[in-house]
């Protein structure tokens, strides 16, 4: 465990697929309205989905949860969900952007796309989290976050509804924390505080 992280964190990115709704309900539900960092989330959803997931999570969280808009500026205490059928990215000026670039890892939105662009912008001040899901999206992105000096968290595969995304990430890198879902919000609160 690397508990010697002394720098201040500036942002959190989360990637999740199968089992995402209940996983995000738990984590976002436990974060307080005072959580000081913006949270960007890629959740694999059907291309036809509307903003229903954001509305649902908004009702479950003290944070403001919304679908990301293009060129939106990041705000503390807000969680941004990738819209269906768009990649979500972070620009150097710390605004959100969207693209219809081809799917990555068969996914649009892709976790790797968010993680890699966020690592370019935030470097060591980024926290990356891979949660439950099928496939391997997020692994390369989490490795990049680690290589840029950011902090990495992976949901304990034994605790995950689908363990392949966490397992794939752990095969590629040694995460700073491997935790069950119900420990992640309190960990984030400590790291961000």
């Amino acid at each position: 465990m690397l508990s010697n992280n002394t720098h201040t964190f500036e942002a959190v990115v989360i990637g999740v697929s199968t089992g995402g709704v209940s996983a995000l309900k738990i984590i976002l539900g436990e974060l307080s309205a005072e959580f000081p960092l913006p949270v960007m989330i890629v959740s694999h959803i059907s291309p036809d989905s509307d903003d229903g997931l954001a509305l649902l999570l908004n009702n479950h969280s003290a944070l403001r949860v919304k679908e990301a808009d293009e060129q939106e500026e990041l705000a503390a205490g807000t969680a941004y969900l990738s819209p269906a059928n768009y990649h979500l990215m972070i620009e150097q000026n710390r605004t959100l952007s969207l693209s219809v670039d081809p799917p990555v890892n068969y996914a649009r939105p892709s976790v790797d796309v968010l993680f890699e662009t966020a690592a370019d912008v935030f470097g060591p001040t980024l926290i990356g989290i891979v949660l439950t899901g099928a496939g391997s999206d997020g692994s390369q992105g989490l490795l990049k976050i680690k290589n840029c000096g950011g902090l990495t968290i992976v949901q304990d595969p034994a605790d995950a509804e689908m363990d392949s995304m966490p397992l794939s990430a752990l095969q590629l890198l040694k995460a700073d924390y491997v935790e069950p879902l119900n420990k992640i919000a309190s960990l984030l609160t400590i790291l961000a505080g």
Binding site: H87, M89, I90, E91, Q92, S97, S99, D101, V113, E116, T117, D120
Partner: peptide
């Protein structure tokens, strides 16, 4: 052009 996508491409 926005940098993030262009950089990736």
């Amino acid at each position: 052009y926005s940098e993030a996508s262009l950089r990736r491409r």
